[in-house]
Structures are given as structure tokens and as C-alpha cells.
Design a protein around this nucleic acid. Sequence first.
DNA 1: CAGTGGTCTAGACCACGAT
DNA 2: TCGTGGTCTAGACCACTGG
Lengths: 230, 230
Amino acid sequence: MLLYQVIRNHIQSLVAEGRLQAGSKLSSERALQEQFNSTRITVREALARLESEGVIFSQKRRGWFVTPDKLKWHPARKVNFNALAQKQGFVPSTEVIEIQSPSNTHQVSHDYFDSKPVYKLTRARYLDGRGILIEEIYCLADRFEGLEQQPLNGSITQVMEHSYQVNVSHEKCEISVTVLPDRAAELLEKNSGAPCLKVQRARYDEHQALVDYNIEFWLHDAIEMIIEGK
Amino acid sequence: MLLYQVIRNHIQSLVAEGRLQAGSKLSSERALQEQFNSTRITVREALARLESEGVIFSQKRRGWFVTPDKLKWHPARKVNFNALAQKQGFVPSTEVIEIQSPSNTHQVSHDYFDSKPVYKLTRARYLDGRGILIEEIYCLADRFEGLEQQPLNGSITQVMEHSYQVNVSHEKCEISVTVLPDRAAELLEKNSGAPCLKVQRARYDEHQALVDYNIEFWLHDAIEMIIEGK
DNA sequence: CAGTGGTCTAGACCACGAT
DNA sequence: TCGTGGTCTAGACCACTGG
């Protein structure tokens, strides 16, 4: 058996047997290196595999930790992130990174909003203090005038319903696997190049008019999407 | 700028400018090492990042290649894989790996089919000769008696409709990012530990009875899922 | 300030692919 | 058989975290 597989299996079984709890810190790379009479390159190979599998994760220069359970996410349902996360036993929080004044210079504005001015809202979401999602939300400036004065750390869908009488009736969703853009990696304190699930959603009202366009970058090990179709 | 980022950017721009066509082979790792006065470790760091991004891919010991376009896949629609792939300019093919005689010893049989005997069909699917998907299909043995005599390299949905008068009316789909199981990696000639998109689908007929249960492992750089909801 | 992870050097051996 | 990628050794320096 390959050495890095031995190290991998060892850590994996520690986690499986519960001897390493979710969120707890692993031994340092150099300690593992000594424990297995190996080198850091090989140890890091094992750690990288475990990270791909979603068993462990790293935060920049802080160390390696056991990955908590994944959030089960229903993108098509208009469920509140906070409520859903709480129901699954997490402590959720949301941080508004920035809201950009109406502008028509975004690519998204050109592609989806007929080059009209749009708001761009950037948020980060956390579970138990761990950053797991960066999202960008674009919506028409004149339809959602004064959006920057609304509470933006909760459900945008609810704000649209209650303050603007706009209802989302259906959506089109594109899902792919890629890496975090550098800016998102920074915000989530991940190394550049961390894999992620990218979800792009165009949401429409009952008149087939585009309500908003969202780009979400989820840590690949933090989410399981559930979709009920047809 | 970090050295591996320099190498990464160099290859990325070669691809972006079209000087490296989709499917074509990159220089060998040792050639790149010399070109950048570096070491193979660093070169491989750059290649690994590009692979995560979906720009290049490797096949076991064969080398590194430029990733072709992604297949746009609509899991909820009853579209034929072959037809969809052809419409997007690919040459698709399907290989039956094995069909297991009815058995009630699978975990899936226990969890989803009330421990009744099920068929297990394993298939691989290819685009332009590149293996991109391993899928396992489970269905009730007594409902699909003689399934092993049906043509199994096309659409299973169509076989179910035409030969068994069973129609899929809705489905529940779970999507997550993980790594290929070793068996799947072998079949697709990928290194163990290659990232993938795992799609589990339970499909039901109009009487809410489970028709089949599928587990699909897609190469992470080969698919973009498109879902229209609500 | 000590220890950690992130990056990098300069080699090596082996199994497998292409030829 | 030769070159390739896959694995591995034995170090090094730096930036940053945490005490």
C-alpha cells in the first residue's frame, strides 16, 4: 500500500471512529511526518486527498480540521438559509461584504438585465463560525430602489416579497465544480485554488421577468444540494 | 508572484488564446520544469491547480490534456444522453460494465427497495472517447424482469417506457462534490482521488412508487448541470 | 517568538504507456 | 526500450498565527 494511502486511511479511521470530532484540529504536518517516518510532501499528499474527499479542511496557515456535516440545501425552495441551518443543528450567520450602488458596468448587467443599472450585493455565510459561502446577488436598481437601506443579512427573497411585493415563481439554475475566485478564497480564509460548487441562479417572477441573478460559491465540502423535480 | 502561479498562468493563457486546442497534450512535466528552471513538485502544483479549475485533465500515466467543453446536462428532463451530447457537438458512447443478477444484498436494496431483489446495472459513458461518467442503476427485479436481455447502452428511461410501460413522473436528486471511488477511477482511467460530482437520483412513477435509484459519478470538469425549478 | 503551513529545491526509484 | 507520470526522500526559507 502506498505510504500516503496509509496516512490517509489512518486519519480517516480516526475520524470515522469518532476519535477526532468534527471541527477539531489534526496533529501538525511535521508531527505526522515523524509519526510515519516520512516527509512533509507525502503527508501533504495524504491531507490533500482527504480534503478532496471532504473529510478534513484547512484554513489559511491555521491548520487542518475535521469537516463538520454538510448543509442539506434545497435551492428551488424559498427557504430561509438561517432557518434551514438551524433546523439542521448549525449556528448560522450572514455578513454583508458590500453593496455596490447601482451601476450598469457589470458583465451580468449586460448579459441579463439589458444593460440597465443593477445593485450588486456581496455576502458571506457562516455555519458555526466557519465561512462556507460567498454569494453575489444582482438585481435591477429601479425595481428595488433603496435596497441598501433594507436589512440585508437575512433572506433577500423575503425582503423582495415584503418590501417590494415581488415574488419569485421559478428559476433556472446552473451548477458546476470549479475553484474559488481569489477574492472569495480570501474572504473565506481558504487557500487560493480551493475547490467549490458554483451555483448560478436566474430567478423570475410570475410574468417571466427576471427578478435577480445570483452567483454562489459554496465550499465543496460544506453543501449537499437536494432537488425535487418535475 | 508565486512560481507555480506563473506556470499556471502561462498554460492558462496558452489555452485561452487557442494555442493549445481542446484535447491536445501538454508538454511533459520535465519539459515544463526545464522551461521554468524549476522542479517537478512545483510544476505539478501548477498542474494540480489547473486540473481543479477544469482547464486541464490527466489520464493515468498518459499525460496532461486540455479539457474539452462541458456537457450541459438537464437531469430532470427525460432527455437521452446520446441525443443531448450529439446536439452539443460530442460523439457519445455508452459501455455496459456489468449487470448483476437480481440480488437483495445491496445496501441500496435495503434502504430504498424494502430489501426486495434488485438489478444493479453499471455503465460508463464517454464523450469523444473520454470516459466522463460511471453510473449505477438499481431497479426492482420483479418489475423489470428480463432487463438483462434489453438493449442497455441507450436510454434506460426509454426501455422502461417501451418494454415495461413504466413512466417516470418525478424524482429526487442529491448532488455533492467528492472523489471517485477507486473502482470508478479505474474504469475512467483516472488517478484515485480524482474529484467528481456525485448525483444520486430516486425516480418515481405517477403512483409515487420508486422506479429506480441511480448513483452517478461525473468527472468534475465534464459536466454543468442545468435545473429549472418550481 | 516559536511553531505552523505555504512554497520551493534537487534529486531518486518504479510501473506503466507508447513505440 | 525509453520516456512518462506517480511516488517519495531530505532538506530549505518565508509569512503568518497564536501564545
